[in-house]
Design a binder for these strands. Structure first.
Lengths: 222, 222
DNA sequence: TTAGAATTAAAACGAACGTTTAATCGAATA
DNA sequence: TATTCGATTAAACGTTCGTTTTAATTCTAA
């Protein structure tokens, strides 16, 4: 199927080069299809990019919500604890990373990059794709952390999404900085099982006191 | 000065559009200089981009190292605690964010984006820029956390750099997701004072047990 | 004042970009 | 077999890209 070959080739190239730096000719060459095939099947380069993301992202986010719902039912009437909620976010990502037929790590790296892409159509698309899932998980966390102010929870969710997407993007630059071997940083399972406890500790940490002038370790800035 | 005007305009445009999507003509128009001026003064678009980053990044990382050294001397012979080490990373970034004359938030957003950019010359450049500073901070953390395995520390530093750069990049997309007002997410001081305790908790959390088959909450994957 | 270098200006370079057009193919339908 | 219609092809479209060239202008120092 031509459409699938284009999607596969585009996924790999967008991951490697980014959206702007990937040309239609590079995509169609890699897919061994005619140059016009992308515009015929998808309309434009932007729509192709969205199709590449949707193909994997939609099912994964749905799986996350379904898993969360299932875990909550198993735990009811006790609220699902934080670590189980986090696992409902991580496990579908992990399963996808392990499945080469669904793009595997390549797709997750592409996704991590897309988060930081300034192109408006990408930002808009991601916000729409994630809105439902994030709201669902935020509600779950709010039940697990009844004493955490909503605003603080929003911040911490923001940090979690940041660390997660950044980590999955797997930039080689910081890989070197952290002195991790490629084999280690390419092991997504190991990675996520290190990341989850790290984020969990931050999520469950006490609320910092930010009352006027009472910030810890002020060093004369301002 | 023509060079300075080019650097300022390029900084703003690279931040807003990314490297590939920013054209030389857009830069020189915004800077009100001739199109050829960039190639004359900087050689190429890539070298201009590196010049934009170096102008701010070099002094900031130097400031971080200097501040860390000073705090360690004040604390000696007791090892500097984690929260003070983290503050040596954050305070220079905060000061830069507050200083419009040094690019302010725009530059930090640009920097956060650069982390996720797949372009090899950017990755290479950043790795070189950060290598010294990260090594210096890793040594400081190792002294503060003598019981934490080196490899685990590498991971946690990776997560910290990820959350920090992602947060400073300030993507609008997830701003919406987290239901934070633009005013709130634009307040870098508030942001970093929320992020620091979050990361500190993760950094100081106990080492997770990852011995074979003893992972917490395994859910049948594999 | 003037020679010479530094800088700017305007124009053009070839290459690569995303997209479109028009012709052709291939298989299912009648 | 003839017809139809979606899929594919080759070619060209106009635009924009980063860079270079050439001429004019400005600045500096003798």
């Amino acid at each position: 199927m031509t459409k699938a070959r284009i999607l596969d080739a585009a996924e790999a190239l967008f991951m490697e080069l980014g959206f702007e730096a990937t040309s239609m000719r590079a995509i169609t060459n890699a897919a061994a299809v005619n140059l016009a095939a992308v515009n015929y099947h998808f309309g434009s380069k932007e729509e192709l990019f969205q199709a590449v993301l949707t193909r994997r992202l939609d099912p994964m986010n749905q799986e996350r919500v379904d898993l969360l719902t299932q875990l909550e039912h198993e735990s009811a009437p006790v609220p699902l604890p934080c670590d189980r909620i986090l696992s409902a976010m991580f496990i579908p990502a992990l399963k996808l990373a392990r499945d080469p037929e669904r793009g595997g790590k390549n797709f997750l790296r592409l996704l991590g990059r897309a988060y930081a892409d300034p192109a408006p159509f990408i930002r808009k698309f991601l916000a729409e794709q994630y809105a439902v899932m994030i709201a669902r998980f935020k509600a779950a966390f709010a039940r697990a952390l009844p004493n955490l102010p909503k605003k603080e929870l929003s911040w911490r969710l923001h940090f979690i999404m940041g660390a997660l997407s950044y980590t999955l993007a797997g930039t080689d630059a910081l890989r070197l900085i952290a002195e991790l071997t490629p084999a280690e940083s390419a092991n997504d399972e190991l990675l996520l099982h290190r990341l989850a406890p790290f984020l969990l500790a931050g999520l469950q940490s006490p609320v910092p006191e930010l009352s006027e002038g009472a910030r810890p370790h002020e060093h004369g800035a301002r």
